Simulated scan of single mutants.
Amino acid sequence: MKRKDKKIVITLLSVVAILIIGGMFVPISVSAPSDTRTIIDHTTQTYAAPSCFDEAEMTNFLQETTFGHAKSLDYDAESSCSTDFYTQSDVPIFFAMLQLFGLGEQQWSEEDRL
């Protein structure tokens, strides 16, 4: 390998290492997958997590659907319980990317999905 090629390889490896290390410390918020079970109230135009339903103040015009559908309707979370359920805070970027590719653990289990 030529000296110039070695410098390029070392520079690229250094950049990748810095991105990986930085990604382990920079936190972001991650939303639930779009196929996560959700209960929507068409009257109040809100959604609730199934685990928050007993405390939710919802009418009888309900539908069980997905989180993606509720967001596409531009409905709001019924309470902070639902907001907390559908958002995972302070996840390092590196681990969020692993979750995106199905390699990392998420707070939402298969039972939470439709």
Rank of each mutant, 00 (worst) to 15 (best):
R113I: 04
G104T: 00
A17L: 14
C52G: 09
T11G: 13
G102L: 06
R37S: 13
A96K: 00
S51V: 14
C52T: 06
D74W: 06
T83P: 03
F85K: 01
T36N: 03
Q107G: 08
D84L: 06
E64A: 08
S109G: 15
M97E: 02
Q45D: 09
W108H: 04
I21D: 05
S79P: 14
S82V: 05
D90L: 06
T11P: 02
S29N: 15
M97W: 01
V9D: 09
G104E: 10
W108L: 05
V15W: 01
G104P: 00
E57I: 13
A32F: 00
F25P: 03
P27W: 06
I39H: 10
A49L: 07
S14L: 14
Q107P: 12
V15M: 09
L62C: 07
A49I: 06
L103A: 12
T43P: 09
I39M: 12
T44Y: 13
A77V: 13
I39C: 08
S34I: 09
F61H: 14
I18Q: 03
S72R: 12
D90S: 11
Y75A: 10
E57Q: 13
G23S: 05
T44I: 09
S34T: 13
R113N: 02
Q88L: 08
I40H: 06
S14K: 06
E78M: 08
I28N: 01
S89Y: 08
L19P: 01
Q99E: 09
Q107S: 12
T46L: 12
E111L: 05
A48T: 15
S31E: 11
I93E: 00
S89I: 04
D84P: 01
R37C: 07
P92Q: 05
M97L: 15
P92M: 05
E110Y: 02
N60P: 02
Y47A: 08
T38H: 07
F53L: 15
P92H: 04
F25A: 08
L73A: 12
G22K: 07
D35G: 04
E55M: 12
V15T: 13
H42G: 12
L62P: 03
L73I: 08
G23T: 10
R113V: 04
S82P: 04
I18C: 05
P33L: 09
D84A: 13
E55R: 15
A96R: 00
R113F: 03
E105F: 01
Q63F: 05
L12I: 11
S72G: 11
E55V: 11
D74K: 12
Q45T: 10
A48E: 14
I8M: 09
M58G: 10
E78D: 15
S109V: 07
E105G: 11
D84M: 11
E57L: 07
I21F: 11
D84E: 13
I28E: 00
E111C: 06
Q106L: 00
L73V: 02
A49Y: 02
V30K: 00
